[in-house]
Structures are given as structure tokens and as C-alpha cells.
């Protein structure tokens, strides 16, 4: 038994070590000089001399400060918008019996699973034609709409678990439909909203492709685009690129560490990822 326990610990530790090795490599790389990287090639070893200046280069040159703000400006309204609108649709799809209910639900679920390449060309053209191309609002509206499928599906699953007797009782008390939604259902799904919000935050924060297609001005680019710009300029400076990557990853990483429970709950409740 004792031996097995030790074997188990070694095995588990080995796997976890393997899993975080890429993180450690990036972390160490971001503090090394290119000379050290090229001469020793010991990626997995801590730097002999620490160079925080790589972060300064990355921060200054890639304009990370502004990209940070831009990402917040895009992400927060997108998450709030998606949560709000999907709570409406989820409410309708979970509490009311009507003819098209199942069909509409299938449309939402199907939409979240399609290859997004299907949308690329038309969404771009549409944004241009109504004048929201290269504006925050264009990306935000797209994110809200695109995430509606998953959010609706997710929240509906959750709302289904609320006993319908609560609903009936409220109806008898004469509460209006919107009052029930706002006063009764919403407070009950708050934990689910939190989980969903954390998940959506990470996804939208990490989006690259849609910003690439819908934004062209440096002024409003999010951090993922900034990072790729940095990559274009510092192709051979792996240390600077690593520093940039860490800067770009740090917010979702912290959000995750702070709200880990919600994040994991969100993933398992939603049973799908974007």
C-alpha cells in the first residue's frame, strides 16, 4: 500500500510537471537574455541572470497598456450583453411551452457548434456595409450575438432545474412575466451567471480571429492582435515574445485563479466550449 502510494505520487507529479513545463519555459525565457538562450539552450533552467527589461521592451513597443484597456472595453460589454440577452431567451425557452420552442433551441445549439469559418465572409461584409467595421461596437455586437448560442443553452439548462412550482405560485400571486423573470428567476440563476460570465470573459478576452477581421486601427486593437504585431516585429527575440505572451495571458490567468470554482463549474455545466 505504502509503495503504491509513492508510485502514485511520482506518477501524478510527473504528469503535472509535464503539463506546466511549457509555462515554466515561457516564464524563464521571458527573463533571459537572447545570448543565454542561444548559448546554453537550457530552456527548462531558470535564468542565470534575470532580465526584467524584456517586459519593458514588450510593454513599450507593443503598446500593451493601450491594448489592455481596449480589451477591457471590448470584453466587458460583450460579456454583460451576452449574459443579459441570453437570460431573456433562456427564460423563454425554459418556462414556456410553445410551438417553436424546440426548434429555436436547436438553432441556438446548432449555431454554437458550427465551424465559424461559415460566418467569416458575410459578417465582415455586413459590418462594413452598416458602418460598424473598425469600431468597438462592431466587435462587441458580434461577440454578443455569437455567444448567444452557448449562453442560451447554458442558462436554459440551469433554469430547467428550478422547480416550476415557484413559477406557478408567482403567477397565481399575479406577478407579470417580466417581474417573474427579474425578481424570481434571475436571483436564482445568479451562480450560473457568475460561472458563465467568467467563462465568457476568458473566451472573449482570448479572441483573435474576429478582431483581426473586424478591426484595423491600432487605437482599438485588443491585446491578442497587439501580441501578434509584437511577434511580427521581434521574430527572433524569443525573450521579448515570451514577455509579451505573459503580459497577454496574465489577466485571464488571474481571473481563473480567483474564480476557479466558477470557471470549472461553467465548463462542466455548459458541457461545451467555444
Amino acid at each position: 500500500m505504502k509503495v503504491k502510494k509513492i508510485v502514485f505520487y511520482i506518477l501524478a507529479t510527473a504528469i503535472v510537471a509535464l503539463w506546466i513545463a511549457p509555462f515554466m519555459i515561457s516564464f524563464f525565457t521571458s527573463f533571459k537574455s537572447m545570448d543565454e538562450l542561444m548559448t546554453t539552450r537550457k530552456w527548462w533552467a531558470p535564468p542565470k541572470e534575470w532580465f526584467p527589461s524584456n517586459f519593458v521592451t514588450a510593454w513599450k513597443d507593443a503598446n500593451m497598456g493601450r491594448y489592455f484597456m481596449n480589451t477591457f472595453v471590448i470584453t466587458i460589454p460583450s460579456v454583460l450583453g451576452a449574459l443579459f440577452l441570453s437570460s431573456l431567451s433562456a427564460y423563454a425557452l425554459s418556462w414556456y411551452k410553445f410551438k417553436l420552442s424546440k426548434f429555436i433551441l436547436m438553432i441556438f445549439v446548432g449555431g454554437m457548434l458550427i465551424p465559424f469559418q461559415m460566418l467569416l465572409i458575410p459578417v465582415y461584409r455586413f459590418s462594413v456595409s452598416i458602418g460598424i467595421y473598425d469600431k468597438f461596437i462592431g466587435v462587441i455586437l458580434f461577440h454578443i450575438a455569437f455567444q448567444l448560442g452557448f449562453c442560451t443553452f447554458f442558462l436554459r439548462n440551469f433554469m430547467k432545474t428550478i422547480p416550476s412550482s415557484i413559477f406557478d405560485a408567482a403567477m397565481i400571486d399575479g406577478a407579470g412575466h417580466f417581474t417573474i423573470y427579474r425578481r424570481i428567476v434571475m436571483p436564482l440563476v445568479l451562480p450560473a451567471l457568475a460561472a458563465l460570465g467568467i467563462l465568457e470573459f476568458t473566451w472573449i478576452w482570448n479572441d483573435y480571429l474576429w478582431s483581426l477581421i473586424l478591426i484595423q486601427s491600432d487605437e482599438i486593437k485588443p491585446i491578442t492582435l497587439g501580441l501578434v504585431n509584437l511577434q511580427g516585429q521581434w521574430v527572433t527575440s524569443w525573450n521579448t515574445m515570451a514577455a509579451g505572451a505573459i503580459i497577454a495571458a496574465v489577466v485571464p490567468l488571474f481571473v481563473f485563479l480567483l474564480f476557479q470554482r466558477y470557471f470549472i463549474e461553467g465548463l462542466t455545466l455548459g458541457s461545451v466550449k467555444g
Binding site: L88, I107, L141, F142, A145, F146, G149, T152, H177
Partner: peptide
Amino acid sequence: VPYAFLALPLLMYSIWVIFPI
């Protein structure tokens, strides 16, 4: 009633997802 709740989300979904497909 359900359609009233669904109106806005479905509209947006149609514009940015369904119609593009």
C-alpha cells in the same frame, strides 16, 4: 410572451449567425 422575450436575442442571432450561414 415567449416571443417577446426571444425577440431581441433571436434578431441578433439571425443577423450575425444564421443569415451569414
